[in-house]
Amino acid sequence: MGALPGNREEQPLRIRHPAFRMDVMFTQSFGTAFELIATLDAQLFAIVGLSLQVSVIAVAVAAVIGLPLGAFVAVFDFRGRSAAIALLNTLMGLPPVVVGLIVYLMLSRAGPLGPFGLLFTPTAMVIAQSILVLPIIAALTRQTVADLYGEYTEQLQSLGVGPVRAIPTLLWDGRYSLLTAILAGFGRAIAEVGAVLIVGGNINHVTRVMTTTIALETSKGNLAIALGLGIILLALALAVNAGALFVQGVAQRVEGG
């Protein structure tokens, strides 16, 4: 399997180099960032595209599981429910490298899912990010749905709506808050590096995404490119958050909160 690309021992970090100048680097990297975007650099597009693709699919998978799961925990009173809530909340802060390691072990040749040969593929990255994002979406969904259910419970009971039927109702009525939860999950997925690096391997043209490229280019001393990508990443995160705010704003105005 070999050492992971971007290993520090191969490529000493050049940040301490005497010639290193912060101001120059910033000007350069902004220049590089705009150059990268302006020239529609094909490789850059492939990298940004894969990042988006992996994270969007991972978030979609996490949402399909996490929304009903969170709603279930919110609506049903079962044994060990508080433990489940505590677990979900704890897992929100799951370290990406740990998720990466676990998925790596599952997918590696000797692991239980080894025969599928998924290690170092985009699918592996999707799996890892889904696991990373699932608790975030599930925990935020549980909170949203629980608050809503507190408000609705007597009315729903009066209409003859049982807990099973209540779940889709509550998910729909919490749609704006839940969209924010999903966007939070996306922000986490697109920005993490540990999990995708471990299970994807940062293979050029195959599993190289923005964050792993930043890590690699930084370690190679190509700070301008690294920062340029960092700026694009930030811009994406900004766009997502702006989208979340916009959705909330629309919800407030249109739906009366």
């Binding site: 609705y152 009315q155 003859g160 109702t169």
Partner: peptide, 20 residues
């Protein structure tokens, strides 16, 4: 119990309306 449910309605002091 299903028939009982269908034949009753309640209006609460503070109306609970769905976000629709």
């Amino acid at each position: 119990s299903r028939r009982l449910h269908k034949k009753q309605a309640m209006v609460f002091q503070r109306p609970v309306l769905l976000r629709r």
